[in-house]
Design a protein around this nucleic acid. Structure first.
Lengths: 261, 261
DNA sequence: AACAAGGTTTCATTATTTGAAACTTAGTTT
DNA sequence: AAACTAAGTTTCAAATAATGAAACCTTGTT
């Protein structure tokens, strides 16, 4: 992915790098970790700053992701994500099952959580939406991978880290592939404490009419509260929600443009 | 701004264009409204899609802002925005005054709302955070403009539309400049129904130790509930919050990096 | 005063972008 | 079923922009 998208791709690589620090960074820190020569990186950072994609703090000489991203993300979240469409269904679902519900989509080879509803404490969206996670060891990740066309799947499987988080984490594409077959057969999959000990979930894909993967929906719980069989009992209810979201998504088309100021 | 940032600037221009539609768009719609020749726009859209900055819907042949933006925005919101820092103060403030509180920052020449708290009905953030508004006719906008250094101010004033929303909207840089002087003198400013009839607010800037504009804080109400004098009474309380946020912002530095998965 | 380190600018070379035009589909119309 | 049309895609020489080594500032340090 990173390769061969010319200058724009390289600039976005720099943007990702800055974002990855999780705090404002100095130019010198960036150059130490950058494949680009000083002058080149310098120009990228200048350009991105001038475009408000990065914010420069002159008091400290640091760079951070810029506010223009927040504006663009607003648009992305509303349009490209299932979140606004799925909102009501997720509210209902989480209230009904009394557990945490996640709505996720695939960004490249990673899972990106676009919404989350916790039965207990009400939302705090921006701080949760946008979080990324691994695809190979999460319920939502595997549910989406299971329905990817072979050519895309091969690509995505090659990009996973297969880091062993727990004893039940998949550590190779082969064992993962096997489970993906099961998921396709059942229509749903589990996270068997593969990412965090004690945390389990059931996940279902959200598919378009043409069977493209739009996203995934999951209900998460802990081994102290329930078990896989318990979660499996929720599948029909989650299936209903997933189907409703898919239907909404396909209806959601060209809602007569409104002019803007 | 749009000028002279090379290929990257142009690509981001395209990204903005797509985002501006508020719905998925076809390539043909983009080309009709684009200054770029077909082949050039085509390559931009390809590149942005390959980078997940745009999402392509193959069923419908449409483009929309991509999920990578949501991920980047998460980083932007946490780091570049005052929102996470200001959260508690805003909670307190809105609970105490019982009115809507806005936290805004400047993105180029526009106001971008990074957080909002409504005393009455609890938040629905993503739908609000990221929203943009005009700087010349909003409380937060004017509060920030008032403390901008002259060279930046001139630039920003030139970019305002001066559209007359109501009878009290500023329609020229000159009358606006005059009010900015008053705001600087008082330390706070009003929105006198300049954007929407019946809606008024008091706004204060949030300034760094070196007096750079970090953002602005406002309390909004309606003419049926209160008046300017009533809002003015809240200034000391808002000032406390603004000062606390500024202090937090300056302390918030290099909080020991955590490695990421 | 000499020395670094972080940051910024220069400029000839090199590689990428540019865009008119030609080409492919797929969907109409005569 | 042939001729038209609109939308999307590819080509390629010319024009333009990106590159990066090295020199140059600036600010803080020994």
């Amino acid at each position: 992915m990173a390769s061969n998208d010319g200058t724009v791709g390289k600039a976005l690589e720099v943007l990702d790098q800055v974002a990855s620090y999780g705090r404002p960074v100095r130019f010198s820190e960036l150059i130490d970790a950058s494949p680009f020569p000083k002058a080149t990186l310098y120009r990228f950072v200048q350009t991105l700053t001038s475009q408000s994609m990065l914010a420069y703090d002159p008091d400290r000489g640091t760079y951070a992701p810029g506010v223009r991203l927040v504006r663009l993300a607003h648009a992305a979240w509303q349009q490209a994500s299932l979140a606004p469409i799925a909102r009501e269904e997720i509210d209902l679902l989480s209230a009904e099952v009394g557990e945490t519900v996640h709505l996720a989509q695939l960004d490249n080879a990673q899972v990106i959580y676009v919404d989350k509803r916790n039965a207990a404490d009400p939302v705090q969206m921006y701080s949760q939406a946008g979080k990324v996670g691994p695809a190979y060891c999460t319920g939502v990740g595997k549910a989406m991978l299971a329905y990817l066309p072979e050519n895309e799947l091969a690509d995505v499987l090659g990009q996973q880290s297969y880091h062993r988080f727990t004893d039940s984490t998949h550590t190779s594409p082969d064992s993962l592939r096997e489970e993906l077959g099961d998921i396709r057969a059942n229509g749903y999959g589990f996270d068997r404490e593969e990412h965090e000990p004690g945390i389990i979930c059931v996940a279902l894909p959200i598919l378009s009419e043409t069977n493209r993967v739009l996203g995934a929906l999951s209900v998460t719980s802990t081994t102290t509260r329930t078990n896989l069989a318990g979660l499996e009992g929720l599948v029909p209810r989650i299936q209903t929600a997933a189907a409703a979201i898919a239907k909404e998504a396909s209806a959601w088309q060209f809602p007569a443009t409104a002019a803007n100021s």
